[in-house]
Amino acid sequence: MKQRPMAASKRRLSLTLAHGVGVLFLLVAATALAFEVMAFAQTGSYRMVPSGELWFMIHVGSLNLIQAITQRYIHPALWDPVIAALLQWPAWSLLGAPGIVLAYGLPTGRRV
């Protein structure tokens, strides 16, 4: 079925944005992985950096704020245990997996 021009344009914009977010996730995941590898090279022992730790280092205020919003206005259990468990995962895997899907698993949005 042929899409109307306006709807097609919105879809292309959404896909482009999703692709951009995916690329951003992949960049952060790659940075986190590089950080772990460098630490391993320096110390000789591997230490996984949890996503929560990375978030804490980058911007503790938003981590704290989103926890409060989630627990107070949505549901306490959504943060702990659900999101809290995810934040224990290594940053490269937590961001890398959705990054790959968003960056490469969606249509490009270009006309073919």
């Binding site: 730790e53 978030w55 702990d80 245990p81 809290a84």
Partner: peptide, 9 residues
């Protein structure tokens, strides 16, 4: 205290 599992704090 499960909040203390967030070792980054």
């Amino acid at each position: 205290a499960s909040g203390q599992k967030a070792t980054w704090y």
